[in-house]
Amino acid sequence: MQDKKLNNIDEEILDKIIAVAYKDAPVTDRIRIYLLTKKNPEVKKILNEYRQTAGNVKKIPLEECPDSVIKSLETKTGKENKSFIIKPAYAFAITVLVLSTLVFVLLNQNKEKEQVYSKAEIENAELQVKTSLAILNKVFKKTENLIREDILPKRVGKPVHKSLSIINEVLIGG
């Protein structure tokens, strides 16, 4: 029967009928086949048969992959999977731990430094500073006196005076 039909309808038209039935023919072919169905009832019949099949083919769902396949897959790739997941988790935990320890130590160190200087110690330090300044003052005063009373008149004034009197003697005497 099909062969008889094929004798009447050439191969090219049949290909186009199939493409139209499966909805992947260009618009021009659709119009051409539509016009042919109006003229030729056999074309219409073949188109309907293919449409029927195409409609049912489009309804075929994908087969569901059994869960057992995925479960056994997890056991086979599980080790590598875990390492992938756990490695960053470990790294993150270690980083957090190290950072928190560092921050804790730094904060505690600062606190200890602040606590080292008690009021008594500060007073003691002030007293020491005052004493050292007093010693320095004493030394400076001694130095000043030495320069004023000893160095300037004896070591500077005397030679200057002596040299001036020599010049006077030379000039007056000359």
């Binding site: 099909q2 499966y22 048969e49 293919y50 029927q52 195409a54």
Partner: peptide, 16 residues
């Protein structure tokens, strides 16, 4: 598609 139609021709005719 043609081969499938051949396989299903009896059914398709029945339905049509």
């Amino acid at each position: 598609r043609k081969k499938l139609q051949e396989e299903l021709k009896d059914y398709a005719r029945q339905e049509a």
